[in-house]
Simulated assay, not measured.
Amino acid sequence: MQLNLIDESAYAQTMTKLVRPALAGCRDEGWFNPAQAEREAGLTPRGGGLHYLCYDATKFDYEREDGATAVFRGAIVISHGFTEFAEKYDELVWYFLKSGYSVCVMDHRGHGKSARDVDNPSLVWIDDWHRYVVDLAGFARTIGQQYAAGEPINLFCHSMGGGIGAATLEQYPSLFDRAVLSCPMIAPQTGMPMWLTRALVDVLCACGMGRHRVFGQKDFDGVLDLGPYQLSSEPRERWYHQLRCNTREYQTYCASFEWVHQAMRMNRAILKSSACAEIETPILLFQAGHDIWVRNKPQNVFVNRVIDGGGQARLVHIADSEHEIFSMPNAVFGPYLEQVLAFFSAPMIVASEE
């Protein structure tokens, strides 16, 4: 279907007066308790709920928004990126709802309004990367399936959320019907060789520095730095920044050494050929030509190993995009969104039995 993208010249006004009121009319807010899922996976629950926002496509249709389809297509679970939060995806949720999908977005542990294990609101820390995966799977199997209502349940991931998503597809191969990995963190960009990063963070964490902020990063100070977003849509970036300024829980901004340590461990696990061969969910992976946050080569390796293992995976390289493709100007974002929606709505290919 053809979607009319928000006019960037009136972006904040449209989000304030049209998009957010419509989303509020079909939104449910809650807290998912991951304890049972974590215990079943052999993890010790750390306590606290994981905040989520869910949007009901049926209620959205009642709003009679222009361009909304009357066809219910199932649900999309969104796995957000590092230092992000559910509300950052309001615009994308709007388009998914218009296309007939209910949407479920959970703040990962240590992000947004979810439970966190450090006092500094700017700092992201996790004790074990498996916790991200188990939490996402538990959320999708319960809340996500509820909103799918017997129709397909799909996964949309970005950056860190894409690394979590890839690992989830490996460990829970029958959970999702389709998955879009947008610039997934198969491996983070650390500014140094991977082997050196691993060695350094291993030593620092062993010396008790795991909860310390990574060198060179800083706490959130409210200043908008558009330096890393030269190609991105400035109205979108300013909107995200204002959301962060307005809500203290959205001010996660920097990594701890333990988070980097766990990201390195997740990277190794994801790229194991045996793990890639477990994937049954068809994957569409988007890669940005100007990505300074995650490495592109490991994404290529991941896709090739999924295919070699008998899975379905396709890589789309967008040469003129930065890391957040959904934050690019409409000229880039539009074709990207069309491919995402076409992938989710394409007829399922069922293997014949011989």
Rank of each mutant, 00 (worst) to 15 (best):
Gln2Val: 09
Asn4Val: 11
Ile6Tyr: 02
Asp7Asn: 15
Lys17Val: 00
Arg20Glu: 13
Leu23Glu: 03
Glu29Cys: 06
Gly30Leu: 14
Phe32Thr: 01
Asn33Thr: 06
Asn33Arg: 01
Pro34Met: 07
Ala37Arg: 04
Ala41Met: 12
Leu43Gly: 12
Gly47Met: 15
Tyr52Leu: 14
Lys59Gly: 03
Tyr62Ile: 00
Glu63Leu: 15
Arg64Tyr: 06
Asp66Asn: 11
Gly67Trp: 01
Gly67Phe: 12
Ala68Trp: 02
Thr69Ile: 07
Gly74Gln: 02
Val77Cys: 08
Ile78Leu: 13
Ser79Pro: 04
His80Trp: 00
His80Asp: 02
Gly81Ala: 12
Thr83Val: 09
Glu84Gly: 07
Ala86Met: 10
Asp90Glu: 13
Ser99Gly: 00
Tyr101His: 08
Val103Gly: 07
Arg109Asn: 04
Gly112Arg: 07
Asp117Tyr: 14
Ser122Gly: 12
Leu123Asp: 06
Trp125Thr: 06
Asp128Cys: 03
Asp128Tyr: 05
His130Glu: 14
Val133His: 03
Val134Glu: 11
Leu136Trp: 11
Leu136Met: 15
Arg141Lys: 14
Gln145Gly: 08
Ala148His: 07
Ala149Arg: 15
Glu151Asn: 13
Ile153Cys: 03
Asn154Asp: 09
Cys157Lys: 03
Ser159Phe: 04
Gly161Gln: 08
Ile164Thr: 10
Gln171Arg: 13
Pro173Gln: 03
Phe176Leu: 01
Asp177His: 11
Asp177Gly: 09
Ser182Arg: 00
Ser182Leu: 00
Ile186Pro: 09
Ile186Ala: 11
Thr190Tyr: 12
Gly191Asn: 04
Met192Phe: 07
Pro193Arg: 03
Pro193Phe: 04
Trp195Leu: 05
Trp195Ser: 11
Thr197Ile: 01
Leu200Tyr: 07
Ala206Gly: 11
Cys207Ala: 14
Cys207Lys: 08
Gly210Thr: 07
His212Cys: 14
Val214His: 08
Asp219Asn: 14
Asp219Cys: 05
Asp221Leu: 02
Leu224Glu: 05
Leu224Thr: 05
Leu224Met: 05
Gln230Arg: 11
Cys245Asp: 05
Cys245Gln: 13
Asn246Asp: 15
Gln251Val: 08
Gln251Trp: 12
Thr252Gln: 14
Ser256Met: 01
Trp259Cys: 07
Gln262Val: 06
Asn267Thr: 15
Asn267Ser: 13
Lys272Met: 06
Cys276Ala: 12
Glu278Lys: 15
Ile279Arg: 02
Gln287Ala: 10
Gly289Asp: 13
Pro298Trp: 10
Pro298Asp: 12
Asn304Leu: 07
Arg305Asp: 00
Asp308Phe: 00
Gly310Ser: 04
Gly311Arg: 02
Arg314Thr: 13
Arg314Asn: 12
Leu315Val: 07
Ser321Val: 01
Met328Ala: 06
Asn330His: 06
Gly334Asp: 15
Pro335Cys: 11
Leu337Gln: 11
Leu337Gly: 13
Glu338Ser: 14
Glu338Phe: 03
Gln339Lys: 15
Val340His: 05
Val340Ile: 13
Ala342Ser: 13
Ala342Phe: 01
Phe344Tyr: 13
Ser345Phe: 03
Ser352Ala: 15
Glu354Phe: 05
